[in-house]
Design a protein around this nucleic acid. Structure first.
Lengths: 343, 343
DNA sequence: AATCATATCCAAAGCGCTTTGGATGTTCAT
DNA sequence: ATGAACATCCAAAGCGCTTTGGATATGATT
């Protein structure tokens, strides 16, 4: 069923039917109702493509998901983020189109989306420091919103981020207050902006307590379970091993716990862990009582909100870029405790 | 840059330029080359919408991801599956459009995709037993391919599935051969087709060894870490507790291990675990030596292949539905061992 | 009764492509 | 030289919508 057929059935012009359906005032209430009902019974929905051609809009938002070409690693937060964003799009009649691309030829993807006029805007995932994508998108005049931030950008842009610095500062302080002095940081890849901010928070807290930062206690890499395990095992094997760990993700923390227990140590007693928790639906941090003490911020909620911010920007290209800085909440679980006394 | 402008620049008609770019024979080699180069330098790409309108194709495949409305749970395999499928689409110039939808009004989504002519076909995720979506898509005449199977469907359809029955039969046999008699099954929700098949494999193995299936040892639920933990804790607290567990996912298995260790037991010695491993990029089952003994099948590879099967079906609507049944490989890790002797 | 505003509808153009049905040269055998 | 066969290109229609610029009818105003 298309417009032509529908308007024929109703004995009206395409113009009138289109206007009735799109809420224009030049249609009598009676006619509008009649059209509305006919559209429902015949299950008529305008073709997105035709509508897009006519209006110049795509009615779609692009998500370009970079996949590490080295490890073929898909960021595990991506599912929940997308789920959140999808809710927003569905409510506003937008489509979400997804490009999974290894980070080598990401630029081509953006150019393609632009020149094919496939989307009205894009969400930038996993921003790096001095991310080249921001100037690129500016140049392409493609509206965008960033999940995270990219320090080093000179022009303003729309973003939503967790306050990673303050979260990790707080996490580190929490451990310091428990008496820990040797605190390790298991971080994401340092090219990622969030990882850099987290490190800053961690270092600031240490420095403020007069503790010098020890590079031997800081590791960064792709945040897998195995990475958490290996780095923890390594560090626990060192002389002057850490008594506490700040981990960048729950998955890392799981690996860290494995290494701790493998050595016959007890988490929360011999070694404390505090982690960041993205509140992923399939990997909750325990039930009522969290397993891990954690700084927590829902990535799904982030998806919902950032999508809305982008749609706002698309609807009104003139408006100033919006920002949102979310504060993570600290949840005390069973993985942290006072420094073990040296016997 | 659009076709009109480009053809103007070249002093050619739109027809000729279009044909040159699309590989039609009615164009001289010299002209084609000239056109090709101009397209490159001006970064011309035909508008997907206009092309779609003209050809009647959408050049897009829809993925409808059901999200449990109760738990807002996004299936964790989804990211990797999508990544695989995305590779295939990118190679063939298709777009992937994603709808995240709570399973209540999934039907509306399919009808919408059809009537808006937004996609050329869809991938069905998470098939249930007697899934209503298959007859629905048939009725809508929408090409589709199923990740998994839906027992109970009368008409043939395109699918790709892991041989869940044989994988779980094999896993159970592996434990039986180690001497285990009390073997528990921690399964996904039983409405899901895969969970049912897995149970069948498990039960078949037990029965073949003359062991009666004990409902007290079988649990099913959404496969989270917490679910694995709680069910394991429960069962280990029972009289006549299991000495081995067959788990449906690595995440469940992580929870099971937590419960085991919490009781002061040792995995692989006091209690064995064998799990299914989807080879997710962020949750590898250890490094060289697997942590868990597991049946393994890459969900990413599944995405790649199923996407191709769907594109084939779209390209040639007449062809008979294709199937692919993948056999999982068994990887022996450290989580299994002989039955502990009763002291 | 003539004029005008208002309400209601419609024909046709246009969005950027593909594709049909020619038109115009060129080449070759006769 | 002549017509057939081929190579190469183009004008225009059509895909399914929105939107511009009227047309017509109705009722209020003078």
């Amino acid at each position: 069923m298309n417009l032509k057929e529908l308007s024929h059935k109703l004995g009206l012009s395409q113009t009138t039917v289109s206007r009735a359906l799109n809420g224009y005032p030049e249609v009598s209430a009676a006619t509008r109702k009649r059209v509305q009902e006919a559209a429902d019974t015949f299950n008529y929905r305008p073709s997105t493509r035709a509508k897009g051609l006519a209006t110049g809009q795509a009615l779609a938002i692009g998500h370009v998901i970079p996949v590490s070409s080295k490890h073929e690693m898909v960021n595990p937060i991506f599912g929940d983020f997308i789920a959140g964003a999808g809710e927003t799009y569905a409510r506003q009649g937008y489509e979400m189109i997804l490009s999974i691309v290894d980070d080598e030829n990401e630029e081509q993807i953006y150019r393609g989306l632009k020149s094919r006029r496939a989307v009205d805007g894009v969400i930038v995932h996993g921003p790096r420091r001095d991310d080249y994508r921001l100037p690129l998108l500016h140049e392409l005049q493609m509206p965008f919103a960033v999940h995270g931030r990219a320090s080093g950008s000179t022009t303003p842009y729309t973003w939503l981020d967790v306050n990673n610095r303050s979260a990790f500062e707080r996490a580190t302080n929490f451990l310091l207050d428990l008496g820990h002095q040797r605190i390790s940081l298991i971080n994401g890849l340092e090219v990622m902006d969030f990882a850099h901010r987290r490190r800053t928070g961690y270092e600031d807290a240490l420095t403020a307590h007069g503790i010098t930062v020890d590079p031997a206690l800081m590791r960064s890499g792709e945040m897998t379970e195995v990475f958490g395990y290996q780095t923890t095992r390594d560090m626990l094997g060192q002389d002057d091993a850490p008594t506490a760990i700040v981990a960048s993700s729950l998955i890392c923390a799981l690996g860290a716990r494995r290494a701790i227990e493998e050595r016959g140590l007890v988490m929360g007693k011999d070694v404390s862990i505090i982690t960041h928790d993205d509140a992923l639906s399939y990997l909750q941090n325990g039930g009522e009582i969290p397993i891990f003490t954690a700084t927590r911020s829902s990535v799904r909620e982030a998806g919902r909100r950032l999508a809305q911010m982008l749609l706002d920007a698309v609807a009104d290209p003139g408006r100033a870029p919006q920002h949102a800085l979310l504060e993570a909440e600290l949840m005390v679980g069973g993985s942290t405790g006072p420094t073990p006394r040296k016997d």
